[in-house]
Computed example of a mutant assay.
Amino acid sequence: MFRLSTLALLACSVPALAQEINVYSHRQPELIQPLVDAFTAETGIKVNVAFVDKGMAERLVAEGDRSPADLVLTVDIARLMQIVEADVTQPVQSEVLEANIPETLRDPNDHWFGLTARARIVYAAKDRVDPAEITTYEDLASDKWKGRICSRSGLNDYNIALLGAMIVHHGEDYATKWAEGLKANLARKPDGGDRDQVKAIAAGECDIAIGNTYYIGQMLADPEQRAAAEAVTVTFPVFENGGSHLNISGVAMTKSAPNKENALKFMEWLAGDTAQKIYAETNNEYPVKAGVERSAVVASWGEFTADPTPLAEIAKARAAALKIMETVNFDG
């Protein structure tokens, strides 16, 4: 696997090789490597992956036309939009991508494409909460949950996206009151990540928490976290006029893309049956391609109705959602 410094040297010292591509990835290397190995085995095209934890858009801007990166792999609609808004991506026209990826999970201007989905749902204590009590996202601000909810920071991208969806559904005034109500129902100040909310429920600190589905799958596979995960039920609230909120991991082609043809092959392959199955089994995410089986753990959570709101519309509400969370001082 190449480090960023190695990829940067490639851009300056040697021409792009015809049978390789370079990927900047925000996703953990262990999640990407099974995909890389399978793609290379099938096509003979080498994939050099550089793990970029922070500052991906800034790096691409700084590298400009000299960037060796062909593709960007990242999580959350906010990060995808940050890269697009930095003007370092290019549109991609592909019948394969259009056929395999639902319209709501890709950019209307063809700059980014969702590859996996995760639902932002509610974890509920098995011994203290009847799953039937979990109905809508709107209901989480009702008094019946007073002192019973745990949450990570309201400024976290996943929560900002959920609030953005609330804005799209109901407007900013309603979303502000909802955020205030949700804050009033917290059992403690926002802290930690989604896994920490599961642990807090298991420890009796709260009864429910907002989180992403795939974290439960990861915790169930970890002997040290399995007991906490087994203490909660995965429930799927919906918007009053919609379904359960989805977010994505996705891909975009850089404007510089020195290996554009092979990069497109990799994008299309990632949206195909083989890669979608690997994604499902490796990280317990939902395949975006219809007909691909979910992992056994994910399938055990049952069916749900996905919210039809296009992620591009939710992304437009990000600034307003961020302002609301700061105005209500959600983390305070």
Rank of each mutant, 00 (worst) to 15 (best):
R3F: 03
L4G: 10
T6Y: 09
L7D: 05
V14I: 05
A16T: 09
A18D: 14
Y24P: 01
Q33D: 08
P34V: 08
V36M: 06
E42H: 10
N48T: 02
V52F: 06
D53I: 14
G55D: 10
G55Y: 04
M56Q: 04
A57E: 12
E58N: 11
E63V: 03
L71E: 01
L73P: 00
L73G: 02
V75A: 13
V75W: 08
I77P: 00
E85S: 10
A86Q: 10
A86K: 09
P91Q: 08
S94I: 13
A99F: 07
N100S: 14
L105E: 04
A117R: 03
R118W: 12
R128A: 15
Y137P: 01
E138I: 07
S142L: 05
D143I: 13
W145R: 07
S151H: 06
Y158R: 02
G164P: 12
A165D: 15
M166G: 12
H170T: 02
Y174L: 10
E180Q: 14
L182V: 13
A184E: 09
L186Q: 03
R188P: 00
P190K: 09
P190F: 03
P190Q: 06
D191H: 03
G193M: 12
G193L: 14
G193I: 10
G204C: 06
Q218K: 14
D222K: 05
E224F: 02
A228L: 09
P237M: 08
E240Y: 03
N241D: 14
S244A: 14
N247Y: 04
N247H: 05
V251Y: 01
V251P: 00
T254I: 06
A257Y: 02
N259M: 01
E261S: 10
N262G: 07
A263V: 02
L264I: 15
F266T: 00
G272Y: 07
Q276R: 08
Q276H: 05
K277L: 14
A280C: 11
A280D: 06
N284Y: 12
A290D: 13
S295A: 09
A296V: 09
A296M: 03
V298H: 00
S300E: 01
S300T: 03
T305Y: 00
A306V: 13
A312E: 12
A319K: 10
A321Y: 06
A321K: 11
M325P: 07
V328G: 09
N329K: 15
D331V: 02
